[in-house]
């Protein structure tokens, strides 16, 4: 189950907002957008590593969610449902890019990935030397992720970033449990190869 941003005490619950959306209330949808845009954007950004396109795809995911709202039976958490839509939108985009031979291994995509206003949610700041090493390792990780195939990128992000269980990954993609395990294993092996020297040099 993807970690959801639970509403604060006193906030309207997701299910109540969904019901209002299903009655055509766009203001209720605006609340849901504000609540989940950061997670949706992070997911698309990690998959495609381009700020502008991640922004556009996140928009597309929310619009698709709005259109599909009448069919949402509230049989899962709203974010789980939104998450699947976002994943499908992003994965379709990646596959189209791949078909057109455009950009999957384009290193330039990772060069300017952190632009003004796009910083990650703040964490505790480490000491400068540690921060530098972290930044270097972070760049290496992002570069390595960018070089994975869409299928491998997909499973590694679903598992490591979203924390989905294998069964949930299988439902989201969708594919068999065996495929999930195989892809995860080979994705990790590829990352391991690409990051080997970084770890050997004790970054």
């Amino acid at each position: 189950m993807p970690a959801s941003t639970a509403p604060e005490p006193g906030e309207v619950s997701d299910s109540d907002l969904v019901k209002r959306c299903q009655a055509g209330d766009t203001r209720a949808f605006d609340v849901l957008v504000s609540r989940y845009r950061g997670k949706v954007y992070a997911m698309t950004y990690h998959m495609i590593q381009n700020e502008t396109e991640a922004w556009d795809l996140s928009q597309e995911a929310f619009i698709k969610a709005w259109r599909a709202m009448p069919n949402f039976k509230l049989d899962s958490a709203f974010y789980t449902w939104l998450y699947r839509i976002t994943h499908n939108v992003t994965y379709d985009w990646l596959r189209k890019k791949k078909m057109h031979g455009d950009g999957e291994f384009d290193d330039s995509r990772t060069e300017h990935r952190v632009a003004a206003g796009a910083e990650a949610v703040p964490r505790n700041e480490p000491a400068p030397d540690i921060a530098l090493k972290n930044a270097e390792l972070g760049k290496r990780i992002n570069d390595a992720i960018a070089k994975l195939s869409p299928e491998h990128k997909q499973v590694i992000l679903l598992r490591e970033v979203e924390g989905l269980a294998y069964e949930e990954i299988a439902q989201t993609i969708p594919c068999s449990l065996g495929t999930v395990m195989s892809r995860l294993f080979y994705a990790r092996k590829k990352l391991q190869e690409m990051l080997k020297d970084a770890y050997e040099n004790a970054l």
Partner: peptide, 30 residues
């Protein structure tokens, strides 16, 4: 170690650039 580093360097939530504009554009499309 690699899994731990992946989780540390790939945040599950990020600040959306121009968040207000992001919302307003969705409302325009709706």
């Amino acid at each position: 170690r690699m899994s731990s580093d992946l989780r540390a360097h790939l945040p599950a939530e990020m600040t959306v650039p121009y968040g207000d504009f992001f919302n307003s554009q969705i409302q325009v499309r709706l």
